[in-house]
Amino acid sequence: MIDNITKVSSLSSTRGLESLVESGSSTQGTATSVENPGMNFASVLGSMATDSVNSLKHAEAKSFEGIQGKADTREVVDAVLQAQQSLNTAIAFRDKIVNAYLEITKMSI
């Protein structure tokens, strides 16, 4: 069911936020414009979207295992709640990005 969303992973060229956190901590509050070519806004959002899709796929698989009697109820509930939290986070990011875009379009030039 979730396989139709796999094209979102094409936005991401790297995985994780480790290099972003490390580069941010090394500047120690100075405003430098050192840009990591592997990490940009699109790749971070793509990585988050990919993680959300993977969480949804995992929850779906656990649900099917629960229906078949192969998985414990607690495992199914944990997977579904994790997927729900991931989806709510993705929706919140989408809403913030859309609101920011709308604010930019309202600005006079």
Rank of each mutant, 00 (worst) to 15 (best):
D51W: 00
K96H: 07
G29S: 09
K7A: 13
E65Y: 08
I109Y: 09
R15Y: 10
L11C: 10
Y101P: 02
K70T: 06
S55D: 09
L87K: 01
A42Q: 03
N40S: 05
F64T: 08
L11M: 13
S33D: 09
N54I: 06
A42D: 08
V44Q: 00
S86V: 00
P37L: 01
A90R: 00
N99C: 03
E35C: 00
E65N: 04
G46R: 04
I67N: 03
G66Y: 07
S43V: 11
A92H: 08
V53L: 13
L45I: 12
T27L: 15
T30W: 03
N99V: 02
K70A: 15
K106L: 08
A92P: 02
M39V: 08
D3Y: 06
F41H: 02
S9T: 11
S63A: 14
N99L: 07
K96E: 06
F93G: 01
D78G: 05
V53T: 11
A71D: 02
T32F: 00
T6N: 14
L56P: 11
I5C: 13
M1V: 09
P37C: 04
D3A: 11
T73K: 08
L81D: 05
G46W: 00
I5L: 15
I2R: 07
A59T: 04
S108T: 14
E103A: 15
E35V: 13
T50N: 06
D51Q: 14
M1N: 09
H58F: 12
L11H: 08
T50Q: 14
V34E: 05
S63R: 04
S26W: 06
S33M: 14
A83F: 02
G69V: 09
I97N: 03
G69E: 04
E75P: 03
S86A: 12
V80Q: 10
I67H: 04
I91L: 09
T6I: 06
L11A: 10
D51C: 04
E22W: 07
R74K: 15
F93H: 11
T73Q: 06
N54L: 14
V76P: 03
A31G: 04
V8S: 03
T73I: 10
D72I: 05
K7Y: 12
S33Y: 04
S43H: 09
K106C: 03
T89Q: 06
G38W: 01
K70F: 15
N40L: 00
Q28P: 01
S10C: 08
L102K: 10
R94A: 13
K62I: 00
G16Q: 01
T105L: 14
K70Q: 08
I109H: 05
A61K: 10
S86F: 03
L11P: 09
T14V: 15
I5Q: 10
A61T: 15
Q85S: 14
V77H: 06
S86C: 11
D95A: 10
E60Q: 14
S23Q: 12
L81C: 08
A49Y: 03
L102E: 11
F93L: 08
D95Q: 12
V77T: 12
E18Q: 12
T6G: 10
K96F: 08
E65D: 15
I5V: 07
G66D: 09
A42E: 10
S108V: 12
V8N: 09
V53E: 00
T105C: 13
A49V: 00
I2K: 02
D72M: 01
I109C: 07
L20A: 15
A71H: 01
K62H: 13
T6S: 13
A90D: 00
Q68T: 14
A71G: 08
R15F: 15
S86D: 10
S10F: 09
